[in-house]
Amino acid sequence: MLPLASPALASAGVTGTWRIYKPVVELEKCVDCGVCWQFCPDSVIEWERGRKIQIDYTYCKGCGICAEVCPVKVIKMVPENNT
């Protein structure tokens, strides 16, 4: 048998448990630009123009890149134990 792997979610487990800070979006202030979607290293941001963004907290590692690159700064990094 060939040692083949196939693409699947969670190859390293539920990576949302790595998170210390959680990105929280103020959707009413979001300008729907898609920059966070472009830069999220883990593809956990879903984005479709007109429908704004949605973050998959099961796998989000909480790196905070989305909050850094957001041009209008509406993503806040909130400590996990407070939410």
Binding site: L9, D42, K61, C63
Partner: peptide
């Protein structure tokens, strides 16, 4: 940006460090 493919070529839940360039 909105015309780029939405397919996830890198799947969530991978072993990369947080914030990997």
């Amino acid at each position: 940006l909105d015309q780029l493919p939405k397919k996830k070529y890198v799947l969530p839940g991978n072993a990369a460090c947080a914030g990997c360039g």
